[in-house]
Amino acid sequence: MLLPLVRRLASMLTTLFGVLVVVFVILRLLPGNAVTASLGVNAGLLSRAQLQAIDKFYGVGESIPQQFFSWLWSMLHGNLGVSLSSREPVSTLVGSALPVTLELAVMSMILGILIGVGFGMIGALHPDRWQDDVGQGLAVFGLSVPSFVIGTVLITYLASIFHYFPSSLGFVGLFTNPWLNLQQVFFPALTLSFGIGAAIMRTTRAAVLEIKNLNFSRTARGKGMSQIAYVWRHLFLNALVAITTMSGIQFGYLLGGAVIVEDIFVLPGIGRLLITSITDRDFPVVQSVTLIFAAGFIVVNTLIDISYTIIDPRTRSR
């Protein structure tokens, strides 16, 4: 039980390291360096000595492997570099943006899973009845309407009916004013949860319909147990592996969706940070945010892998 866990964590760290290398190399492949890119034409006005001094300050004068390891070293110490546009440490920018995105991600996943599992179970238990049709209809809607459309419609609706206009200045943290904060995050999360819920709904429904026809489900029904016990202990439990897998995939999409939704709802999260830093050519920030997205994805997938062994005893012995 413990050894596979260690092995998984090791493989997670290896993947993370790989991502570091890839991100590093890609950004190094761009012509020029971060300094000339940020100074633009002004770079020509500086003397060689000045340029070298700046290069040294940003650490771009060293050899490539040296740069990589000093970058890695400082990152391990929580130093993500300095933003080229705001001159603030990247860790400060990320530190204020990350909680917002995390909250958004967690809330959309929770909403998506509740919607998806709820409608999926109801649909599978009443196949081709109206309950199922409602769920299927919602799924088609959630899968076919992109989140920027849902988000825009929602925000227009909120603005015209409740006179609510999102603004990054008015954003409050979860711990400053939880109630107001949840209101601010709820609609962006709802926007994202449609797509997530639709995919999870389809997976849940298909898995449960299949499991219902398996022999052990018949055994369970043959015991005369209550409907609730049958549905959750036998049907749902066995559908859980499929549902978890789909949730992991959806989490991957969610990271992309967060960028769009944060922009629409003006949430000061990582997604918005990414967009502004790309427009500003703020490479240290782009680099860090990319890494954080990748790390989030890898961590979630490792957690999902571990959850399989918890759910399914057949995967444990291996």
Partner: peptide, 25 residues
């Protein structure tokens, strides 16, 4: 009513036992 009968008044041993138990419990 069937739930009361199943497993209590009438119990069944199914053909193909290998697939007749829940693999996760």
């Amino acid at each position: 009513r069937l739930r009361e009968v199943r497993g209590a008044e009438i119990a069944m041993v199914y053909q193909d036992p290998m697939t007749s138990l829940n693999p996760l419990l």
